[in-house]
Amino acid sequence: MLVFAISDKGGTGRSVTGTNIVYRHALQGNDVCYLDFDFGSPTAGAIFSVSAVARGTRDRNGLHEYLRGECPQPRRVDVWAESDREGLRTRPPGAGRLVLLPGSEGGGELSALTDELIGRCAQLFGRLEEEFDLCMVDVSAGRSFTAELVLAATVRMPAIPFRWLVFHRWTRQHIIAADGLVTGDDGLLDVGARFGHDPEVLRDRIRFVRTAVLEPDAAELVGLRDEQRAWLSACDSELRELARRHGVGRTAMLGKVPLDPVLQWREQLITDEDVLASKIANAETAAAFDELAKKIVDDSAWEGL
């Protein structure tokens, strides 16, 4: 299964949520890999705490070079072996492989789509799919050549299953923008159709994920005045109504991740140790990632809308 992670705006939590989902999926016993296709700022290495590739690889063997045909195979980082974080450096019993394919430091965005580029991308996806239960691709924010690239590559491999996750924050602007990225001009459906996807089929393969959500009944809000709580509640129901109108509502949502103090301060994986031992992260956050990691392959969560 290929999963493409996208968001309309930058800084929505796409990378942090995506990496935490693959981490949880690996803990659930699956072989997973994470492809950093955010060519402008490949920072997945930092989230996995692999300092050697914190901002991408410097050895001319990253995804950039691979896609440009400058190296035969992109570098693979075995997170269980190469992470600097103590708690990640041993593979827990029963966990699957956790592999990062880093981008290249200073690589830059794609500036054009060529047939060779699409061919190499399709070849990479095909090979990884033979090997991994889940391949998550961080497609970067907004409308980009990268999004076009993966739309074009997936058309060439009709038998390979893929899904899209659109990440957005729980605000007016984000809800409208997330809908626009899917259904608007030059959005995923529009561009997908141009490359030969059936828009109806494509629509069914897209789900939304709400990030850094502050629920009106969250523990963080305990000290609020009644007036403030009432106001928040009203906002929340307004947003729910707005989301429904924009097709970003409950039915099209795969899940939501609560606002977490740790993630607000640092981009990282939330381990069980962070929740149970040092107690710096909230159990609800880890549970939300765990749930998303299951739903992503659960066909009942992906039935037609």
């Binding site: 072989d31 090979r127 799919e129 033979e130 090997e131 991994f132 239960d133 491999m157 038998a159 390979i160």
Partner: peptide
């Protein structure tokens, strides 16, 4: 001709 639904994942 192949359905790409292999019974298990395995690296080459």
């Amino acid at each position: 001709l192949l359905d790409r639904r292999a019974p298990f994942k395995m690296a080459r």
